[in-house]
Each structure stands twice: as structure tokens, then as C-alpha cells.
């Protein structure tokens, strides 16, 4: 009885899911996954750290925005289909409205020299943040002598040769995944 009681305490309804994920969506700049973890595991305690890591596994395994995938998983877990719809909606609704307001401003004032020069500065910084993200992801790679060449090949195919992404990803995954499969078998 007591056990069930504590469980229910941490069982969010649709409103709580929507609001919880709204706060996550609005708190992060350039990626909100760390905020999702904090909300789910530390603040609301809807899941334990281990549960979070396991569920995140599939979200990161599949393509697409990881944090949206995570919202679907958490929503489904507590409120089924409705939860799986409401949680990602909560995540996106606030930021969606904000970017559209910014877009309206851009449409209206974006051609002004002052806006142009501001955006040029922000774009340079944004570019730096992307390089930093690539660097961070690159240093986290396992077995770099084996796998870093695939990074180089991807850059060559996408940025230099401008080959279409779907083809590059399919061929790349077959090669790189094939090498990984072979290496896993040798251990």
C-alpha cells in the first residue's frame, strides 16, 4: 500500500508532463538534454538515473532529435499514447512560439544594416560553437585510430564533395558499422 502510494506520487498526469517538458524546452540553449535529465531524475524523480540511461540508449540509438525521442518515451511510460503526444508538444510549444516571434522580427527588421551586422556576429559565434561540439564529440569517440578516419571520410563526402547525405550515411554506416561489428567479434 505504501509502496503503491509513493509510486503514484511520482506518476505525472498529462498536465504535469506538458508543464515539466515545457520547463525543459525553455531552459536550454543549444541543446536541452542535460536539463531533461535534471528535471526527470533530480527534480521530479519520475525516473531513476539508471532508468534514464537505459531509456536514453534507444533515443540516442535512433536518429532524430534525442530529446524529442526521450519525451515520447517518458510520455508513453506514464500516460500511453496521449502522454507520448503531450510530452514532446510541451517540449516544443514554448520554443516554437519564441522562434516564430523572432522570425517575425527578422522578417520585419532583418534587412536593416544593424540587424545584419548583429546576425553576422552571432553566426560566427554559432559556427564556433558547432566546431566545439564536433571537437567534444570527436574526443569522446572510442578507438580513435580506427574510427576517426570515418569522420574524415564523412567530412570529405559531405562538406567537400557535397554528396547526398542519405547515401553517405548508408554507405558510411555499412563500412564503419561493419568494422565495429568485426572488432566486437574479436574481443
Amino acid at each position: 500500500m505504501t509502496a503503491a502510494g509513493t509510486e503514484n506520487q511520482n506518476r505525472p498526469d498529462l498536465r504535469a508532463l506538458f508543464l515539466g517538458f515545457s520547463s525543459v524546452g525553455l531552459s536550454g540553449f543549444g541543446g536541452v538534454l542535460p536539463f531533461a535529465r535534471r528535471m526527470l531524475v533530480e527534480e521530479k524523480r519520475w525516473m531513476t538515473a539508471e532508468e534514464f540511461n537505459t531509456q536514453l540508449g534507444l533515443c540516442q540509438f535512433l536518429p532524430g532529435p534525442n530529446v524529442i525521442n526521450l519525451a515520447v518515451v517518458v510520455g508513453k511510460r506514464y500516460q500511453g499514447v496521449a502522454g507520448a503526444i503531450v510530452a514532446p508538444l510541451g517540449l516544443l510549444a514554448g520554443p516554437f512560439v519564441i522562434v516564430l516571434l523572432l522570425a517575425l522580427l527578422y522578417d520585419r527588421y532583418g534587412s536593416l544594416p544593424i540587424a545584419q551586422s548583429m546576425l553576422r556576429g552571432i553566426a560566427a559565434v554559432g559556427c564556433g560553437l558547432l566546431f566545439a561540439m564536433a571537437w567534444r564529440m570527436g574526443t569522446a569517440l572510442k578507438d580513435k585510430p580506427v574510427f576517426l578516419p570515418f569522420t574524415v571520410l564523412t567530412v570529405a563526402a559531405i562538406a567537400w564533395l557535397r554528396w547526398p547525405l542519405p547515401i553517405v550515411m548508408i554507405v558510411g554506416l555499412l563500412l564503419s558499422g561493419g568494422v565495429a561489428y568485426w572488432k566486437l567479434g574479436r574481443k
Binding site: 540516442q60 540509438f61 559556427c127 558547432l130 566546431f131 561540439m133 564536433a134 564529440m137 570527436g138 569522446a140 569517440l141 572510442k142 578507438d143 574510427f147 576517426l148 578516419p149 570515418f150 569522420t151 574524415v152 571520410l153 564523412t154 567530412v155 559531405i158 562538406a159 547525405l165 553517405v168 550515411m169 558510411g172 554506416l173 563500412l175 564503419s176 558499422g177 561493419g178 568494422v179 565495429a180 561489428y181 572488432k183 566486437l184
Partner: peptide, 20 residues
């Protein structure tokens, strides 16, 4: 595990390409 390991270096390359 092979897919996860294999896709990681490609993702790095994509983000780097986005920056360039």
C-alpha cells in the same frame, strides 16, 4: 553495439561539416 559505435564517427563528421 556495432551500429552505435559505427554511427558515432559519422555524426562527428556531420556536425563538423555543418560548421564549415
Amino acid at each position: 553495439k556495432a551500429v552505435s559505435l559505427g554511427v558515432a564517427p559519422l555524426a562527428v563528421g556531420l556536425v563538423f561539416s555543418g560548421a564549415t
